[in-house]
């Protein structure tokens, strides 16, 4: 009896520990990020850091303004969103509402496979195919531009958007569709007037999580956006994102230097952005359920 109880206790403790571990890890990472990142502001003002136009981390004295990097990330993200959201939504509508059974399964597998491609592979393929194409089509001196990054990231955001939105469409009760069809509505009228509005919260969440994926992506953008830390004036100019900056420079910096702290501070900014995006997605997904 006591043996059995002991056994129960150990199992429960293990499960509890595993459950709590993820929270502890997140907290530790967050604390470490804050501790290292906030050190920067002993040397540089917050305003100067966020809105400084020049990122020359190894000049003397270093200039640590990340505005070009923030704008770089925004350009690329914005471009990827503009491409992936309409495509992803249309794709999800086709898979969820229109495609016949077998095609639906094929497409779903395809989308999952797209999600399974490592980003470095996508970046590599983009580098040898997309970049020369962008250069040629738009007649640019280099194909390593924001637009190349946007197109590539759109491919990465698509699976997220499609699979979450398809779940949202699946959750729309059958009765709504039947009721609409039985009234003589066409399939498109039913989708546009009944199905999409009822799935709207899920669709917003899908888009937000897709954007979140794009903001945090590193390898592919580093390979194909040119990495020039200047304020980008158009989609056809090279840009450098926040993620690429951290990845490229962390290995070469002196631990404890201002540069080092600045990279952590960029990490905080990224963390804040993705956190807000995920929060909005979560709110869209769960905030509305209370009403129904």
């Amino acid at each position: 009896m006591s043996m059995r109880r002991y056994y129960e206790f150990v199992i429960e403790a293990l499960i509890f520990a595993s459950g709590i571990a993820s929270i502890i890890f997140v907290l530790l990472i967050f604390i470490f990020l804050l501790k290292e990142g906030l050190m920067l502001f002993e040397h540089v003002g917050v305003f100067e850091f966020l809105f400084g136009k020049y990122w020359y981390p190894i000049s003397e004295p270093p200039r640590l303004g990340i505005l070009p990097l923030i704008l770089g990330s925004l350009w690329v993200t914005f471009g990827a969103t503009v491409i992936s959201v309409p495509l992803g939504i249309a794709c999800a509508i086709f898979i969820g509402e229109i495609a016949p059974g077998w095609l639906k399964e094929v497409l779903k597998a395809g989308v999952e496979l797209l999600a399974a491609i490592p980003s470095i592979v996508l970046g590599f393929i983009g580098l040898v195919t997309l970049v020369p194409m962008v250069k040629k089509v738009f007649g640019l001196p280099t194909g390593l531009t924001a637009i190349s990054g946007s197109i590539m990231l759109a491919f990465m955001a698509m699976p997220t958007i499609v699979s979450i939105m398809e779940d949202a469409l699946n959750a729309v009760p059958r009765g709504y569709r039947e009721g609409s069809i039985a009234m003589g509505a066409t399939q498109w009228q039913t989708i546009r007037r009944i199905v999409l509005p009822s799935a709207s919260s899920g669709i917003i969440a899908a888009v937000m999580l897709g954007i979140g994926r794009v903001v945090g992506e590193t390898m592919a953008v580093m390979m194909i956006t040119g990495n020039a830390a200047v304020i980008p004036m158009s989609f056809f100019a090279p840009v450098r994102t926040m993620t690429a900056t951290i990845a490229a420079e962390m290995g070469e910096t002196v631990q404890g230097s201002e540069h080092y702290f600045a990279l952590f501070a960029i990490g905080i900014v990224l963390f804040a952005i993705t956190f807000v995006i995920n929060l909005l997605a979560d709110f869209a997904l769960h905030g509305k359920q209370i009403r129904t």
Partner: peptide
């Protein structure tokens, strides 16, 4: 027209539920 076993009003306002038919047709 068809009335189903489980009432299935659309997730719209009362007004829009009725106006749906006239507007699609």
């Amino acid at each position: 027209g068809m009335v189903f076993q489980r009432p299935n009003p659309f997730p719209l306002s009362i007004f829009d539920n009725i106006a749906y038919g006239p507007s699609i047709h």
